[in-house]
């Protein structure tokens, strides 16, 4: 069973609100940069960047920093990390589509620290679905939704041209 939780209009509103909160909390866009986590966070970071004219934006691949790398049966695919500016002294807003166990965010913070020493790291997510396994919380949340552990949340963002097709879908898993 799958339910649409957010439609394109609601997603647009959520992105606008997150953008305003980021700028308000940091008193402008000075020394501010956005880092989208591969792959779900990259498009979202681009949308926030455009909405708030936050020009410094990059993407981060966390596959080499995952904590399940020795447990999974196959190595995760290594994707490109693209950060063309120094992170030293910056306020970095990590951007991801869904916040779940918090393990990706832990990996992302470790990866970021290897690039430099940001003044602050903040976290923006479109969906917070709960079930944290680490002491991590988001600074900016588009929408909190209650889920069971086995549910799947799919954020379907599209490029600039076809925003009208955006949606967030909740697919119910087998509850135990």
């Amino acid at each position: 069973m799958s339910i649409e939780i957010l439609n394109s209009k609601e997603i647009e509103n959520a992105i606008t609100r997150i953008t305003h909160e980021i700028i308000e909390k940091n008193g402008g866009t000075k020394a501010l940069c956005l880092i989208g986590i591969q792959r779900g966070g990259v498009l979202l970071a681009e949308r926030i960047s455009r909405a708030g004219s936050i020009d410094e934006i990059g993407s981060l691949d966390i596959s080499l920093y995952r904590d399940d790398i020795n447990i999974k049966n196959e190595q995760p695919v290594v994707r490109a990390t693209d950060i063309k500016f120094s992170l030293n002294g910056k306020t970095v807003v990590l951007v991801d589509d869904v916040l779940f166990t918090g393990r990706s965010i832990r990996a992302a913070m470790d990866a970021l620290i290897d690039f430099g020493r940001p003044a602050k790291i903040q976290l923006a997510v479109l969906i917070d679905r709960g079930h944290r396994e680490l002491p991590i919380r988001a600074d900016y949340v588009g929408k909190n939704i209650p889920t069971t552990f086995n549910d799947t949340v799919e954020v379907r963002l599209h490029g600039h041209g076809s925003k009208d097709n955006d949606s967030v879908i909740l697919i119910r898993g087998n509850s135990k």
């Binding site: 596959s63 080499l64 920093y65 290594v78 994707r79 990390t81 290897d114």
Partner: peptide, 23 residues
């Protein structure tokens, strides 16, 4: 080859070390 291009990026950084084969 695709995986190697990800690692080529790592070699261009200041900190040229990543943790996947720890231990």
């Amino acid at each position: 080859l695709d995986t190697a291009s990800g690692f080529k990026d790592v070699l261009m950084r200041d900190i040229k070390k990543v943790p996947p084969l720890r231990g």
